[in-house]
Design a protein around this nucleic acid. Structure first.
Length: 377
RNA sequence: GUGGGUAUCGUCAAGUGGUUAAGACACAGGAUUGUGGCUCCUGUAUACGUGGGUUCGACUCCCACUACCCACC
């Protein structure tokens, strides 16, 4: 066991009217101001975007994935390359997901036992086994600053008994993850709260994982198809259930409204594939709401995607050109729209941080969301 | 000029005597939340080359014309 934690978290300011927090997370690869939005780079790359461009648009920490890198190219190869940072040319902080969620969302023929999850690869159908120990071994080889516990993410909807089973197993697996993870001053292990949409299970899950005194905690099992109101209801309790002096990470959430509502409920970290996936499908987030660049109405629109945006795409290209690129199947389309959507969420997080510092978080949140969801174009 | 072939939505392409003429692409709209990038869902079209004929009934059979393709001169 190491003598100190890999990360340090300080709270710099808190909001008077909500649970919003302004913090700073120090990792072996640098500091992160929170609340933070983390772009997702599943296969050791944020699809279509170079690391230097991520840095330039304000991204400070990336998420990557155990499941994908374990299957391809294999974690030993990444280790030989000098670890994930060197392999993908990103020297900032990285967080790796444990592979738990992916086994459930991607792999075919999964079989869950107390030991772990047996599954078939979505790439070639080959059979594999991930256990808490294996997930930690892979994540140790990858070398991310923050690594995640191997958890079982319950479907929605799911009955109380099966949600309890998954949640309790996640807690037992967390003990094994913690035992397997030795280099705690190089990589911080986060535990994951489960419990489906059941408040009693959420509370018990939180108590179990908090008792293990980890450097950070994640809220898992949300945004899995439930109504947003229900997600917010579950989030309402999280500030009380999780220690205030540790970072909280809401997994997989990142629509503009969820970002603000999560922050208002005490969440510090978010990740989401939405900005990059939507970009590849022609959808853009703008200060006046989402738009679909495919739409015929942009054919002769020579203005920027979002007049209020300072990103590379908005300062150099028109909607008409972006529409042309998309309609032509040009890959630059994915790059330019990804740069914009990522900048949009990173900038939203910047605004959130400033507003918490100045005590105007609620006003900022309301103005932002009103413009996004009601103003339109 | 002679012989042969082909003409069905913007494009490609089923249908070959019998109700509202497939489908794909394109086009149009939507979806997307711990990522199988080029995916999924939905929608639209005054499409049977032109003019005659046969038939109860023609995209389908016959004749002529027009256009394009191939071969020959």
């Amino acid at each position: 066991m190491g003598g100190k934690d890999a990360i340090k978290f300080e709270l710099l300011a808190t909001d008077r009217n909500t649970k919003a927090r302004r913090g700073r997370l120090t990792t072996p690869h640098g500091e992160i101001d929170t609340p933070v939005f983390m772009p997702v780079g599943t296969a050791a790359t944020v699809k279509a975007v170079k690391p230097e461009d991520l840095r330039a648009l304000g991204a400070r920490i990336l998420l990557s994935n155990t499941y994908h890198l374990f299957l391809r190219p294999g974690h030993e190869i990444v280790r030989e390359a000098g670890g994930l940072h060197a392999f993908m040319n990103w020297d900032g902080p990285i967080l790796t997901d444990s592979g738990g969620f992916q086994v459930f969302s991607l792999a075919a023929m999964r079989r869950i036992s107390e030991e772990g999850a047996e599954f078939r690869s979505h790439i070639d159908g080959s059979k594999h086994m991930l256990t808490p120990e294996k997930s930690i071994e892979v994540q140790n080889a990858l070398g991310a600053d923050i690594i995640m516990a191997f958890d079982e993410c319950a479907d929605y909807p799911i009955d109380h008994r099966r949600a309890e089973e998954a949640s309790e197993r996640t807690s037992r697996w967390l003990e094994r993850c913690k035992a397997a993870h030795e280099d705690t001053d190089r990589q911080a292990l986060f535990g994951i709260m489960q419990g489906g949409m059941y408040k009693d299970l959420r509370r018990r899950s939180a108590e179990r994982i908090v008792a293990m005194d980890l450097p950070g905690y994640a809220i898992g099992g949300l945004s899995v198809g439930e109504p947003k109101a229900l997600m917010y209801e579950i989030l309402d309790d999280c500030d009380d259930l999780l220690p205030r002096e540790k970072p909280r990470y809401l997994m997989g959430v990142g629509s503009p409204d969820a970002l603000f509502e999560g922050v208002a409920r005490g969440v510090d970290m978010f990740d989401c594939v939405l900005p990059t996936r939507e970009a590849r499908h022609g959808a853009a987030m703008t200060s006046r709401g989402g738009l679909n660049i495919k739409n015929a109405r942009f054919e002769r629109d020579f203005g920027p995607l979002d007049p209020e945006c300072d990103c590379y795409t908005c300062t150099h290209y028109s909607r008409a050109y972006l529409r042309h690129l998309f309609k032509s199947g040009e890959m630059l389309s994915a790059t330019l729209l990804s740069l914009h959507n990522l900048r949009f969420l990173v900038r939203a997080a910047e605004g959130i941080r400033r507003s918490i510092e100045s005590g105007e978080f609620v006003a900022y949140k309301e103005a932002f969301l009103r413009k996004y969801y009601f103003d339109g174009e």
